[in-house]
């Protein structure tokens, strides 16, 4: 790991213990989270069109289940994530998994106005959502947020920082830590979140913008996170409704993530 301070100050580093030595520069951090990006997923399914409500929900949940597996190995590659308590790791992932999947969908769709690129072999036009009750509202929110990212000319480096921020910020305002281990894990989490914000600020500083424009851009990007949380909550409710009405069979990891979420909300 890269020493953050010049070698001349090495003796003082020893007093700061591991945290100090393991602090990466924003550039290092960006490299790590860019490398952590999951591979593209192909559904490799013969999709009979036009979709029915159940065939579309089946395809969407099948894709989500595959993406969740990749998302967990992605999270483990975020520097410092595996040093958090297992309870925190689980809590963070269960709070934000749909936000992460939706941000990934927006990123894949950013250059395709009016379309949602769920996967290279599963691209939907807005109106194809009409066959699923209640999903048009969510598709329209996803398309609106995606066009905002297009307007902002979101960069890949910014996208990966936002995704890490969503993961690390997802349970900031839930239960306050009690035990010493929880306090320590939360402090690690706060430091980690600072590293991601530092990395995003660093990326924006490389875009040739004035310092005021940089500050505004940081604000615009982080404000979008609240829209993503909103769409994700709508999506979670919709999926729970589809499951309850037996429109689609939800199983395995997706069922686990959905249930912990609904039990959490209820």
């Amino acid at each position: 790991l890269h020493l953050e301070a010049p070698l001349s100050s090495l003796p003082s580093l020893r007093q700061h213990g591991r945290e100090r030595r393991s602090a990466m520069t924003p550039e290092q951090f960006i490299c790590h989270i860019m490398e952590a990006e999951p591979p593209e997923i192909y559904l490799m399914e013969d999709m009979k069109k036009p979709f029915t409500e159940s065939s579309m929900m089946m395809t969407l949940t099948h894709l989500a289940d595959k993406e969740l597996v990749l998302m967990i190995s992605w999270a483990k590659k975020i520097p410092g994530f595996v040093d958090l308590s297992l309870a925190d790791q689980i809590h963070l992932l269960k709070c934000c998994w749909l936000e992460i999947l939706m941000l990934g969908l927006m990123w894949r769709s950013v250059d395709h106005p009016g379309k949602l690129i769920f996967s290279p072999d599963f691209k939907l036009n807005r109106d194809e959502g009409l066959c699923v009750e209640g999903i048009m509202e969510i598709f329209d929110m996803l398309l609106a947020a995606t066009s905002r990212f297009r307007e902002l000319k979101l960069q890949r480096e910014e996208y990966v920082c936002l995704k890490a921020m969503i993961l690390l910020n997802s349970n900031m305002c839930t239960s306050s830590p009690e035990t010493a281990e929880e306090v320590e894990s939360r402090n690690k989490l706060l430091r980690l979140l600072d590293s991601v914000i530092d990395a995003l600020v660093w990326v924006i500083s490389k875009m040739g913008l004035s310092s005021q424009q940089q500050t505004l851009r940081l604000g615009h990007l982080t404000m979008l996170l609240s829209h993503i949380r909103h769409v994700s909550n709508k999506g979670m409710d919709h999926l729970s409704t589809m499951k309850r009405k037996n429109v689609v069979l939800v199983y395995d990891l997706l069922l686990e993530m959905l249930d912990t979420n609904t039990s959490g909300s209820s």
Partner: peptide, 13 residues
């Protein structure tokens, strides 16, 4: 969280 726990605790490839 059996599946989630299993994926979190297995050594990544």
């Amino acid at each position: 969280h059996t599946k989630l726990l299993q994926l979190l605790t297995t050594k990544s490839e």
